[in-house]
Design a protein around this nucleic acid. Structure first.
Lengths: 237, 237
DNA sequence: ATAATAGTGTCTTTCAGACATTATCTA
DNA sequence: TAGATAATGTCTGAAAGACACTATTAT
């Protein structure tokens, strides 16, 4: 038999396959806190519990796993996040009561204001402070997924400026530092933080300033491909 | 309907689900070369092409994705590798002609001698130098998976001593440096390499020496949990 | 002027790069 | 002793930590 015939006769449903879902841990920064987007489950299983936004891969709608993640996030926030990165795949016989399942988890970042309206209009979707999540009873193994996502985000905060995607398009350096500090959970030396960003040319000065109390701060935006930049030396943890 | 009833009535086969496989990029170091284990496909699809060791998740045999990876590697090498880490999941409608598929890829490392006998006895499994793989026509998207695995291994070589798992349990420092150099593809300063390993206490001196030509080199083994150690500063690329 | 916040100067510390030097083995 | 390889000494340079200092706004 040649390959063409083999493919023609192949029947997926003759084989037992795990369930495949995609889940996203969407972080933002708001009012001093690192927050995670959670969705209250309206259907079985785990009905009524908070869970990560996500769901089954659609063979017709999705051209990639990333597409599934973006589609699911858009359903809940009405926008596609500016930063999305695959985190890890979790699989096993008992993480979902329906049977052997795999979820491909993504980490995403977005500015809080970007989807504030979409979220405030429904009660089943909300931002929860990361620090409080460990006290909740989440669906499936989502507690573990979130903690793994946070772990990785901490690392990113030490050698990239990826956390900038949790802020609006323009932001001040003190704001960016606050995000980093909220993520890693301890203060950073202002000088070290600014020096490395300047030397690597990761930000573009918009020329504008933002003033609240005290001296106005310069407003920056991310420069081209600065999301990919890795410092060769980490900040101290 | 309560959750129990829902689960009892749930029928996976009513839903179309992607195929789920696990593939492993198993690296080793031998005779100056970084090599990858490949398997010649004996069945459709992609029959006759070199491919990564891997296959479908078995809902009955496997308790996790890692278990699938280890099972598949053991089938080919007769041993379970000392280092196994999830790399990335690749998914899409066209990477496998049988339909929308997901593969969870792992990176693994093992000493060459560990599985030399199992591999030499069959012609369908072999170590191929990493540098030659890009010229082969591999099955599925395995070319991309290998190149992604290598990318990650290069990074690991710059801030961990994970490459030590490509060597036997005891090894010399010059050997370890050679592995790192084979991975990153350029020479490393001997002093820098040794200094950081010594300061972080990552190796244990066995007290023995190995002599070929010139001064005998001390034999070391990995110390407890040194696989998890991350240097805060990378070596130069 | 004072308080508040933004931003800089500069000294110290840490650790990798460079490369010369010494040590220990075999032939 | 010469050649080979292992291991160390030590100076330089780059970048982070620490923290004092200056700058710019509002009241």
């Amino acid at each position: 038999m040649n390959e063409k015939d083999y493919i023609a006769r192949y029947e997926k449903r003759n084989f037992d396959a795990p369930l495949v879902t995609v889940d996203a841990v969407l972080f933002t920064y708001h009012e001093g806190f690192l927050k995670v987007l959670l969705v209250k489950r309206s259907a079985h299983p785990e009905k009524g519990k908070w869970a990560l936004p996500g769901g089954f891969v659609s063979e017709t709608e999705d051209n990639s796993l990333e597409a599934t993640a973006n589609r699911k996030l858009k359903e809940k926030t009405s926008v596609i996040p500016p930063y999305l990165e695959q985190l890890y795949s979790f699989g096993g016989p008992s993480r979902d009561k329906r049977g052997w399942s795999v979820t491909v988890a993504y980490t995403a970042l977005i500015a809080h204001q970007c989807c504030a309206s979409a979220i405030n209009t429904v009660s089943s979707v909300d931002w929860l402070p990361y620090s409080q999540i460990s006290q909740l009873s989440l669906a499936f193994d989502h507690q573990e997924i979130i903690s793994r996502a946070h772990e990785r985000l901490v690392q990113k905060a030490l050698y990239t400026i990826v956390p900038a995607f949790a802020l609006p398009e323009t932001f001040t350096l003190p704001e960016l530092q606050q995000v980093h500090e909220a993520i890693i959970g301890k203060p950073i030396q202002k000088k070290s933080f600014r020096r490395r960003i300047e030397q690597a040319n990761l930000l573009v000065d918009t020329g504008e300033k933002r003033s609240e109390k005290g001296r106005p701060a310069a407003l920056y935006r991310l420069s081209e491909s600065s999301a990919d930049h890795k410092f060769i030396r980490n900040l101290e943890l």
